[in-house]
Write a protein that binds this DNA or RNA. Structure first.
Lengths: 134, 134
DNA sequence: TATTGTTATACTCTATAACTATA
DNA sequence: TATAGTTATAGAGTATAACAATA
């Protein structure tokens, strides 16, 4: 049943989100940092399209991250309307640290699974990734 | 790699959340309705423990749902401090409708998968459910 | 005129601190 | 005194509408 799969994914993701430590950034802020790391420096418009939020929403998130020194804004040399947003070293460090802690949390739980269960999870990974990109 | 699985799940769940229609309730409100449907009438304290939010947060969400007529509050007969919260028929209807639309969205995407991919997804479902409950 | 970014405003969801009522 | 619920307040994240600057 598709419904069961959908609900299991939603529940697990929710559970993972609830697990963030007090020092963690919210999912939106982390999403922006991750996007900048993966795709490199981007304009505000590119970021908002990437994260599927409106430009004002993204602007607000970027303001918070800039105030925390985790990313930088610089005017585009080509087009005076555009702003180039890129990760700072501090931003990269936050990203590494968060990822390390989340992997540890998730790894602890995966470690309790049987070999069959682990295999099933690994086999599903590319499928989940594909569904997310559809 | 555990990290890849974790990230794939987070991404897909995020994608699913972004898909909610204009008429949908937020994820917290829907979570409360779903919890009431599954576990039956509950007190505010039980609901906030179940959804892992603080009592004031839950109270606020319950206020919104009560104002919309989707759940009801009644004083507990045993203990004057407690309040029993339960689904109304309207709440049940909203839940059914939302579920129907989300299943349709997800089902469309699953339909594009190969048989092997569908099998992998089904095999992983109980594992995902187990991880969410760990 | 069209595009890019921004500000103003509003609503949901979350939290902590402080209060009320009941046990 | 302790517990259950609530209110007050604040911050993050989302949106739409309106505006400024540049192309």
């Amino acid at each position: 049943m598709d419904s069961e799969i959908r609900i299991a994914i939603a529940k697990l993701a929710r559970r993972m989100r609830q697990e963030r430590g007090a020092s963690d950034l919210g999912p939106s802020q982390l999403g922006v940092l991750a996007s900048l790391e993966i795709a490199g420096p981007q304009t505000l418009g590119e970021l908002s399209a990437q994260e599927r939020v409106t430009a004002p929403s993204m602007n607000r998130t970027v303001n918070l991250l800039e105030a925390s020194g985790l990313l930088s804004r610089t005017a585009s040399p080509d087009d005076g309307r555009k702003v180039i947003i890129e990760l700072t070293d501090a931003g990269r460090a936050v990203l590494d640290d968060t990822r390390r802690r989340r992997d540890a949390w998730f790894g602890e739980r995966v470690a309790t699974l049987s070999d069959e269960e682990k295999t099933a999870l690994e086999a599903a990974t590319p499928v989940l990734r594909k569904l997310a990109e559809l």
